[in-house]
């Protein structure tokens, strides 16, 4: 297990941005997630060695943030906000709807590895809640119809 040449380069650049190596841990974990899909124990070990930080500390950071996946995820990672504003605007029913539609529970991946469904903390779209994020894109003012439409477009 090793970063590709390209990621390695990005990593070197990331290091430049911080006064201490340890400070670059979060962006490095992101790079690792991009490269390897998710942060398996092996990946955490690799990053720990690369950054010269004890592995338990790296694993602590990796597990603290929900943005890091500790399990493999599908091609599309649907992250639905479950915080207050979205909750007040009925996101719970939408999560139920997604569960029925995809036939999986929260935290699971469809058998064809296409979708993973998670709930996350506030996405910063409270003014247009309910909101969700799929990979790097955000969707707000969600309704059932809108969800149908969005998922339809994802191949």
């Amino acid at each position: 297990m090793e970063f590709s040449k390209e990621t390695r380069k990005k990593f070197e650049q990331v290091l430049q941005r911080y006064p201490r190596k340890e400070a670059a841990l979060l962006p490095t974990l992101y790079l690792a997630q991009e490269e390897f899909g998710y942060l398996s124990a092996e990946v955490v070990q690799y990053v720990a060695e690369l950054m010269e930080i004890p592995a338990p500390r790296v694993y602590g950071v990796a597990t603290f943030y929900t943005m890091f996946n500790k399990e493999p995820v599908g091609r599309y990672h649907i992250q639905v906000c479950s915080n207050v504003s979205c909750a007040l605007r009925g996101v719970e029913q939408l999560v139920e709807y997604l569960k029925e539609k995809l036939k999986i529970n929260v935290g699971e991946t469809t058998p064809d590895k296409k979708f993973t469904l998670s709930t996350v903390e506030c996405l910063g779209f409270c003014d247009n809640s309910p909101a969700m994020q799929i990979n790097d894109d955000y969707y707000s003012d969600l309704t059932r119809d809108k969800i149908d439409e969005i998922l339809e477009k994802l191949k």
Partner: peptide
């Protein structure tokens, strides 16, 4: 482990109400 023993063998994993102390792997 970190300060006295000089071998950081334990960590805090997960967050909030789900936090646990543990060893890596």
């Amino acid at each position: 482990c970190r300060e006295i023993a000089g071998m950081e063998e334990l960590g805090v994993f997960n967050r909030g109400g789900r936090s646990v102390i543990g060893t890596f792997r």
